[in-house]
Design a protein around this nucleic acid. Structure first.
Lengths: 282, 282
DNA sequence: CGCTGGATTGACTTGCGTCAACATACGTGG
DNA sequence: CCACGTATGTTGACGCAAGTCAATCCAGCG
């Protein structure tokens, strides 16, 4: 059974069953060197000590799973079984309010961890939806727990990844609580740029995989405001925009707009929005 | 050396040294039954299996520490050594933006965990400041790690507590991203009420330990807006306010204002803002 | 090739911020 | 223990950043 053809169903029951299945009968597509052959291995938050531990990580990454654009990896309330690492592509995390309102509460690029909010109650607290055709590595949490009790580096890394998510969320709250629309958009672009750069992509030219509406939802503003602000930045010569394609022209200017205090005081604290885990020991 | 007289210094160096010190030479004030004698033991997020494990927890809670109103337990950038559990009183978590702006990103009541954001980089990412004269239990993270590799319930609980903080932060982001000022204030009151109730305090009459400014900062609105909204709620007969004292008169009305979809659909998802950890196995 | 979802831009509205005056509570020292 | 001064809280008047509504444009896809 090729994993790659298995649909990502909407129904939580269906998905839960699929996950159970993979736990007990690894399909043929599973390989023993998921991490060794992964282009993202040195950026992967779930991979402690970067290269060194990939053999052990391979015990953990049971199989990979594709997700087509728009498909859900999991939904709010689905039974939590696995953590995921984005292998290729990108995802949005969507949270729901009881009255039906929803908000994008995060974007996740290759190497970043998904599903951390499920550990606490045994149900995922958000939806994870692919922004483009993507693949993820599946890490059954039970295996991760066992491995983490055997190998110190693994437990340290899980703690670190979880804590990094807490820090990241705190920074997002700051953005939502204190910044103007202009600052939010600038910060958003700079954060994306930084995260892409880390993955050896261009930090000045990239494609926004999310719509204006998703961007606005994430930033706590309306899509029209996102659009207007991008247009203004273009008029001011800070960036060039053509639909989803963005080129950063004046990095310093953009930093000023985003209020990263103009020039050079980076090292003081972790970058706003970054969910990076640089995988150094605690 | 009585711990209770040790000042909570501003200097990170000073604090780090103090922490090191307690790690190696437990002072006289340390007792072996911190948890057994704790009034909050059944509500404590750090205490797995509620009562059952308190003996093991007592190995972990090295000593307690008082913090007078306004004092910092730790500051941004301080070396991370310990996790804390609020034992009595309450704290605010304050995050900083590089340009000096700051925001309250959380309030913490008895039984709730502090310092989780320090694990990731080895430095705390926020300040923790006492809102009133308070005490905390100190849990050296190194001990917690050791214990968590020995006892499955401990590691599970640490994972759960970290994940619960991620869920909580996600809910806060939703609030900041989608709610009106009125909804935020109502949600804030309802959340406080719920958390106090859990601790066997009155859920309808309580004291706001934070100022209007701190409340506003937390909610992403200005102190005047907090004040006006509280006054409006009072005029509408939802609450009674006298300075910091609040009495909830019309719970359903307040829920409607906070948009918890009027009547009765609670169990669907964890309460907004709650950082509770009910300590069930994962 | 036309349809549909997404993006842009403009005109108008409004919720909340800002500024300011005043009220009250609190803690601090005489 | 009281008195004063500073913190905090309340309320009003006004302005503006961002939301709303709407028209148009554009691009990708069947």
């Amino acid at each position: 059974m090729p994993i790659s053809s298995e649909p990502l169903g909407r129904s939580s029951g269906q998905y839960a069953r699929a996950a159970q299945h993979t736990l007990h009968t690894p399909p043929a597509a599973t390989n023993g060197d998921a991490c060794m052959t992964c282009a993202m291995r040195q950026f992967c938050a779930m991979n402690p000590y970067e290269f060194a531990r990939t053999r052990q990580m391979d015990e953990l990454v049971l199989c990979q799973r594709p997700a087509k654009k728009g498909e859900a990896l999991y939904r709010v309330g689905d039974t939590f079984n696995n953590l995921y690492a984005v292998r290729t592509g990108s995802f949005k995390k969507v949270s729901l309010l009881s009255d039906g309102r929803e908000q994008v509460t995060g974007f996740y690029l290759a190497g970043e961890p998904l599903g951390l909010d499920g550990i606490s109650t045994g149900k995922y607290a958000s939806d994870a939806i692919a922004l483009e055709d993507s693949t993820v590595c599946i890490m059954p949490f039970e295996r991760l727990e066992v491995l983490s009790r055997e190998i110190k580096a693994v437990s340290q890394n899980v703690y670190r990844v979880l804590s990094a998510e807490v820090v990241r969320d705190g920074n997002l709250m700051m953005m939502l609580g204190t910044m103007t629309a202009e600052e939010r958009v600038a910060t958003f672009l700079l954060d994306l740029s930084r995260r892409l750069q880390r993955r050896a992509y261009s930090s000045t030219e990239f494609v926004l995989r999310m719509t204006r509406e998703e961007t606005g939802s994430f930033l706590g503003i309306k899509l029209e405001t996102v659009s207007r602000t991008l247009s203004r930045f273009q008029k001011e010569g800070l960036i060039e925009v053509h639909g989803k394609e963005v080129r950063i022209v004046d990095l310093e200017g953009l930093r000023a707009a985003g209020h990263e205090t103009a020039t050079g005081d980076q090292p003081r604290r972790p970058p706003i929005l970054a969910s990076e885990c640089t995988a150094k020991p605690v």
